[in-house]
Computed example of a mutant assay.
Amino acid sequence: MSVFPRVIPVLLVSEGYLVKPVKFSGERYIGDPINAVRIFNEKQVDELVVLDIDAAVKGTDPDHRLIEEIASEAFMPVAYGGGVRTSEQARRITGIGIEKIVLNTAAFETPALVTEIAELLGSSSTVVSIDAKRRITGGYETYSRRASRKTGLSPVDAAKRAVELGAGELIVSSIDRESTFSGYDLKLVASVAEAVEVPVIALGGASGLNDFAAALQAGASAVAAGSLFVLNGKHRAVLITYPGQAEIRSLRPS
């Protein structure tokens, strides 16, 4: 088992295209997700997350054609989320070659599905994504449906419930920080990591290695980023990047 921290690119797709919103709003066309997967292969990425950001909002099924293409091209384990509403859909997706299923909207609207998928595929293949935003009055609120619907749960309560239902891993994403390059919300990450025993992946706001290190220090088991790995420079030009192995090794706690 690797002792190095997991550094995970997150690809957001909509209607088959790679896109990048800011704070979960709007979206900028980035390119072909398959091309991004191929580049990440070359860069020896250890793990990848692919999320269809509109499937739950539009009520569409997972794009099995795209998923099959990704699974056939990826040299690394892939987690997929977006539009999964039944355990049969989850079974089909993992049968294609995807390792993990990521649930967000369904985890809040039909929580029993988390348990069904965990029992079918195992907790290690069942991931719940928690999208959180700071309240003006203090604390946090969690959202589903691409940050358009409040769940009524705090991130800590959402995390605890997800684990009780069977989730073996959590992605904790800051809506306020997404695509801002302003650093992770470390308070959010720490609060969830302290509340559960399963791995917590920090997402939203990373600008570089220092942010990765800070999130790991705050209790995250792994770090993830979207914009950092697909946009580059002051003008945010499209460029697929990933840190070298020496840089990732430098994140290992001393």
Rank of each mutant, 00 (worst) to 15 (best):
E27Y: 14
V84L: 03
I201V: 13
T151M: 05
V3P: 11
T105H: 06
K58S: 14
A71V: 00
I39D: 13
D54Y: 14
A107D: 08
G205L: 02
L251T: 01
G183Q: 08
L209C: 03
V163S: 07
S129E: 09
N232A: 13
V189Y: 07
D176G: 04
V156D: 08
V78T: 05
K234T: 11
L48S: 03
R177E: 10
R38G: 03
T94Y: 01
A162G: 10
A193Q: 11
S125N: 14
P77Y: 02
A74M: 07
V114D: 07
S14R: 15
V128M: 12
F181H: 12
S148F: 03
V127N: 08
G26R: 09
E197H: 14
F229Q: 07
K160R: 15
G208P: 08
S25K: 15
A147G: 09
A106W: 01
R146Y: 11
P155A: 06
L103F: 04
D185P: 05
A214M: 06
E73L: 11
V13I: 11
K58E: 14
G244E: 14
S221P: 09
D54T: 12
A215D: 09
V10I: 09
P21D: 15
D46V: 00
P243Y: 01
Y143S: 04
G122H: 00
